[in-house]
């Protein structure tokens, strides 16, 4: 009996903590939803619960010029960026984590160095590069420039995780005569799902939310991505900020990401439990 009370306290404390985490995480998002359902002066008034359900702002955003198109662009750009980064990073991190060669540490640090400049400082050079390659105003301009921040990140994280995989698995595969490519795809990838999905997700969000490059490298509305489309939402005048539509748009573009997490979350928690290998 005593024990069950202690358990009950533990259980309550645990769930209380979960609730606190969830509330803090989603309150601003909840507030965004609330705001997106308001219009006009109501936006300047504080409410904790929805007072009216006007979907006007959502209609404005969805029927707005090219908004849906921007969402599709973003999905394609972010998706391509992530696939490219993961492909390059998985192979590279195999080499960096499992094969000995000289200058490995130096190479890792150099890769990191690419991410050490402020975005705005590399903008002029990247712009020249993009124009030189003739990919200005195409999605490739963004895919290319996003590798600057996605690639170092994915390489580092995957290298770290791959290094921790037990040696016995690889040995067994080598004895079976597996080539490095087979080892990566057939042996390591299944074990690395949590890491792959997590880095992929984080890189996806990074590419999805990027604003500065997307704004600089596109000029047609049909090529633009979501953050630019949101920044393009405007009020009737220069000074007015259209809060309602901005919040509605933010809610709309956050939903696919939440869906993505829900889809991939089984993979996040798959991990070594399936393999049952000791470290």
């Amino acid at each position: 009996m005593k024990r069950s009370i202690a358990d009950w306290i533990k259980w309550t404390a645990f769930y209380a903590f979960v609730v606190v985490i969830v509330v803090i995480s989603i309150f601003p998002f909840y507030y965004a939803i609330l705001t997106s359902l308001k219009s006009g002066t109501a936006i300047f008034r504080i409410n904790y619960f929805p007072v009216d359900f006007s979907f006007q702002n959502y209609a404005t955003v969805m029927t707005g010029r090219n908004f849906v198109r921007s969402v599709i662009n973003s999905v394609l750009v972010a998706g391509t960026t992530v696939l490219l980064a993961l492909f390059l990073a998985v192979t590279a991190s195999y080499a960096l984590s499992r094969v000995r060669f000289r200058g490995r540490a130096l190479l890792l640090v150099t890769i990191l160095g690419v991410s050490m400049f402020p975005q705005i400082a590399v903008l002029a050079g990247l712009f020249e590069l993009v124009r030189f390659l003739g990919i200005y105003n195409t999605p490739w301009a963004m895919v290319l420039s996003y590798t600057i921040f996605t690639l170092p990140f994915t390489v580092w994280v995957l290298t770290t995780f791959m290094r921790d995989l037990p040696i016995e698995i690889e040995e067994a595969a080598i004895i079976d005569g597996a080539t490095p490519w087979v080892i990566i795809t057939k042996v390591f990838m299944p074990l690395l799902w949590p890491a792959l999905v997590t880095t992929g997700l984080l890189a996806f969000i990074g590419a999805w939310n990027e604003f500065l490059f997307a704004l600089t490298f596109t000029i047609s509305e049909t090529q633009r991505t979501v953050p630019v489309a949101i920044a393009l939402l405007s009020g009737a005048s220069e000074q007015e900020i259209p809060w309602g539509p901005i919040m509605a748009a933010s809610v709309i573009v956050t939903v696919p990401l939440v869906a993505l997490v829900l889809i991939f979350q089984r993979k996040i928690v798959a991990g070594l439990t399936a393999g049952g290998v000791k470290g």
């Binding site: 979960v18 985490i21 969830v22 995480s25 989603i26 601003p28 998002f29 507030y31 965004a32 997700l201 984080l202 969000i205 999805w208 939310n209 604003f211 979501v226 953050p227 949101i230 920044a231 900020i241 901005i246 919040m247 748009a249 933010s250 573009v253 956050t254 990401l257 939440v258 997490v261 829900l262 979350q265 996040i268």
Partner: peptide
């Protein structure tokens, strides 16, 4: 699963929007 999706929301909202929201 839902909690995991919920905690990711702050990271998922574009910075330009969440900064304005705050």
């Amino acid at each position: 699963g839902l909690v995991r999706a919920a905690i990711l929301i702050p990271w998922a909202i574009p910075t330009i929007v969440s900064a304005k929201m705050w």
